[in-house]
Design a protein around this nucleic acid. Structure first.
Length: 425
RNA sequence: GGAGAGGUGUCCGAGCGGUUGAAGGAGGCGGUCUUGAAAACCGCUGACGGGGUAACUCGUCCGUGGGUUCGAAUCCCACCCUCUCCGCCA
């Protein structure tokens, strides 16, 4: 969330960012609440100061073993009055806080202005889409023909937006995940992590999923746990409430986890195949960075995600999300879109964002500045490195052959017992 | 799941319902002493919010949330977490 004092003193700048995001939020609402809170605070604190004084006097009298009943009688009703004001104050504070928690992040100056995804500019392209001398299939067709992907039985087990994959295809998904993790751990020095896949409310609030986006999450009411929609949530919250060492920044983590999304409101979108499921796997990168160089870390992290696509020889492009399309917590985001010949378009496979101190403030993650008493908030960044299910889709569609078989990308072969081709039955 | 113990400041650790924001240590910072260092001694050493140009001042915070009281770290209730033992379990 944004800093309360910053919002108060930069109302115009905040409103401008909200407008660029197509948000309907009005800073005037915040302003009114803030003023109300401050005047109530003064009122109640004056009363409390008075009460504390009288109580101290009573204490003195009692210690002198004298009778204080007269003074005690005089304070009757004071507690009630304070309590009533405290309740009012708590209500206003709650409203103000809810406003702040529901307010999206500011925007980096380099984030392009735009209404929606159609306005996202392309930054660069890598690779050349392959020319096929036969009609290309989409991945679900390939999977079904190979007998290695089964959506009907998955629907029987769970419902729509679930998948079953088998044998070489299942193994290839595992190979992809292992390969990604190995690259990030041995080449990028990320700390491999196995985090909880269910987290509590505070954790979801720390990264910005709650309170605003509850409908996107799976919730276990018994324990009040939420299934993670991305490993960004547990990883970013690792240092919640802690003070990190400046010398340790930037500090990066990665994790291979399932991700659970309710996909409410996506009816009719990507209803076929592996593109949009309630459950998928993703290798996620999260960095805690120094505010001075977090944008360099963003470039580096994006390059790390790109490296995976390059090693798999999958053509992709990098786009910058515009102000109307960028996520709630981010000030700047690059999306990597991989070429899917079956769909004849580029599709999102990674999203790399700098959230600056937006999440750090929510989750209270600071660092001790050396040679100073200050404890500034860190900057947090997150990026997919990559979405494993969608990478499998990209490999299937890009590596398909005329006879319906799939060539196994070279870098994956060591993870698949040397297998070079996945043959149809 | 059952039985018990406990959660206090950077850390350890006290705390009869009333000068306790919190004893006493340790650590850190500054100083005295010293050729230098150590030791010893002295002082300082939390966060957040409100008011004030400022010096400063007021309020809140002893796991979390409620309650009792003129007054709660201290009493009551609920919840969370940690530890020990038993049971169950991959």
């Amino acid at each position: 969330m944004l800093d309360l004092k910053f919002v108060r003193s930069h109302l115009d700048a905040v409103q401008e960012a909200l407008n660029k995001r197509n948000s309907k939020l009005d800073v005037g609402e915040f302003s009114a609440l803030d003023e109300k809170r401050r005047s109530l605070t003064q009122e109640v604190e004056t009363l409390k100061a008075e009460r504390n004084q009288v109580s101290a006097t009573i204490a003195q009298i009692k210690r002198a073993k004298q009778d204080a009943s007269e003074l005690i009688a005089r304070t009757a009703g004071m507690g009630e009055q304070i309590k009533a004001l405290d309740v009012q104050l708590a209500e206003v504070e709650e409203l103000e806080n809810t406003w702040l928690l529901g307010c999206p992040n500011l925007l980096h100056e380099s984030t392009p202005l735009g209404k929606g995804e159609e306005d996202n500019p392309e930054i660069r392209r890598w690779g050349t889409p392959r020319n096929f001398d036969f009609p290309v299939k989409e991945h679900w067709e390939l999977g079904a023909d190979l007998g290695l992907l089964d959506f009907e039985r998955a629907a029987k087990l769970a419902g729509s937006r679930f998948a079953l994959s088998f044998a070489a295809l299942a193994r290839m998904e595992r190979a992809l995940a292992m390969y990604m993790l190995d690259v990030h751990v041995s080449e990028h020095n990320l700390i491999e992590t196995v985090p909880p896949y269910m987290v509590n409310r505070a954790t979801m609030q720390g990264t910005g999923q709650l309170p605003k986006f509850a409908e996107d999450l799976f919730h276990l009411p018994d324990k009040d746990f939420f299934l993670i929609p991305t490993a960004e949530v547990p990883l970013t919250n690792i240092y919640a409430g802690e003070v990190m060492n400046e010398a340790d920044l930037p500090k990066g983590f990665c994790a291979y986890t399932p991700c659970f999304r309710s996909e409410a409101g996506s009816y009719g979108k990507d209803t076929k195949g592996l593109i949009r499921l309630h459950q998928f796997h993703k290798v996620e990168m999260v960095y805690f960075a120094h505010p001075d160089n977090s944008y360099e870390v963003l470039e580096q992290m994006t390059a790390q995600a790109e490296k995976i696509l390059q090693r798999l020889d999958l053509p992709y492009r990098v786009i910058a999300l515009c102000t109307g399309d960028i996520g709630f917590s981010a000030t700047k985001t690059y999306d990597l879109e991989v070429w899917l010949p079956g769909q004849d378009k580029y599709r999102e496979i990674s999203s790399c964002s700098n959230c600056e101190d937006f999440q750090a403030r929510r989750a209270n993650i600071k660092f001790q500045a050396e040679g100073s008493k200050k404890k500034p908030f860190v900057h947090t960044l997150n990026g997919s490195g990559l979405a494993v299910g969608r990478t499998l889709v990209a490999v299937m569609e890009n590596y398909q052959q005329k006879d319906g078989s799939l060539v196994v990308p070279e870098v994956l072969r060591p993870y698949m017992g040397g297998l070079e081709i996945i043959e149809p039955k």
